[in-house]
Design a protein around this nucleic acid. Structure first.
Lengths: 183, 183
DNA sequence: GCAGTTTGGTTGAGCGTTCAACCAGGGGTA
DNA sequence: TACCCCTGGTTGAACGCTCAACCAAACTGC
């Protein structure tokens, strides 16, 4: 971004949209974070790690798969899994075929913690996001999110299609399907 | 958790919307944060503090006004202003009429820093949020944000009352105590 | 006037994220 | 084999946020 010519400032309406959007997402995030922290004693990020693991075959994922799934840095996951492991919710296993790698495995305790946290979290999401919106708005929000997502990560769009295929092949795992609705 | 009856799980469409929305906002936030940090050497929060001050009469605001304007905690602002002051972008002044309070005043250097950072930031917002959306989607996003905001804002007051009640009955709920100990 | 409470604001510890440095194991090439 | 680069993952310091404790000044009631 070298020589910037005259910047394309936001119009008044755009500015209002941006500020409302910014405030809404920030408050939503704070609200959900607080709810989860208070009721389940874990930050939202950790909850999402547990969700990702619970949906994986055998409830295990390589660290890097986990990172990609949640679009987080490897470093972040390393720290997160370390703490989850200290809580007894996740266990690390070294990978026999690639000695560099390691698996993160959801423990029964971790699954139980997730099962306990899920209803409250889903209820919070529904209350604060879906309830105040009309069905058309929900649909619009989905399209808007997809558009922004596609812009921000053009490569991830392809990956998403791949994910979808993968989900289908998992359909026979009951609990996975069940818990998938938790988030 | 005890009182909760059958949770209202998310439908498949709702789940997809939620995940896309969640990912999109997170990536958007990360993108803008990174852009601002890289180009202007300050986190988004600090940028917003400078913006708020620059729009205020005489470019000065009481700490609590600043907190309300950005819907941030007083603590956060105290820390933020401390760092901004260390950078020479904001100056604190004690309030003569109320000796408890203090003003945060935008310095010329702070205003200059803001002027330098603004074009890049606005461009980033436009590129990543407005450009990929149609005008109708922008309008819809505004309405959606306003609706969520309206839901969440009054909710804060109600949530606090709820919290108070919860604390009272906390004594005999062992489950809660156990979770609280988890962290 | 004087206690008790409320308000404006600061402080410090704890936690999660980021960033850069690092290490070890793979994969390719010669 | 030896070499080099790439990849998977960890570590520690820096930093911002949150939470609870705290202080001082301002109100309130008597």
């Amino acid at each position: 971004m070298g020589l910037m010519s005259e910047p394309r400032w936001l119009s008044d309406e755009e500015q209002k949209v941006w500020r409302d959007f910014s405030a809404a997402t920030r408050m939503l995030q704070a609200h959900l974070e607080g709810q989860l922290q208070h009721e389940a004693g874990m930050p939202h990020t950790y909850y999402e790690v547990l969700v990702a693991l619970s949906e994986a075959p055998e409830r295990r994922l390589r660290m890097s798969e986990l990172a990609d799934a949640r679009k987080a840095s490897r470093s972040r996951l390393s720290h997160a899994v370390a703490r989850l492991e200290a809580n007894g919710w996740v266990r690390r296993e070294s990978c026999p075929t690639d000695k560099r790698g390691s698996w993160a495995v959801l423990t029964p305790e971790g699954f139980a913690a997730l099962e306990e946290a899920a209803p409250g979290h889903v209820e919070a999401v529904r209350e604060s996001l879906f309830d105040p919106l009309t069905p058309e708005q929900v649909k619009a929000l989905g399209e808007i999110s997809a558009a922004v997502l596609a812009r921000l990560s053009p490569k991830c769009a392809a990956a998403e299609a791949e994910m979808a295929l993968r989900e289908e092949s998992l359909a026979d795992i009951e609990e996975t399907a069940e818990l998938a609705k938790a988030d």
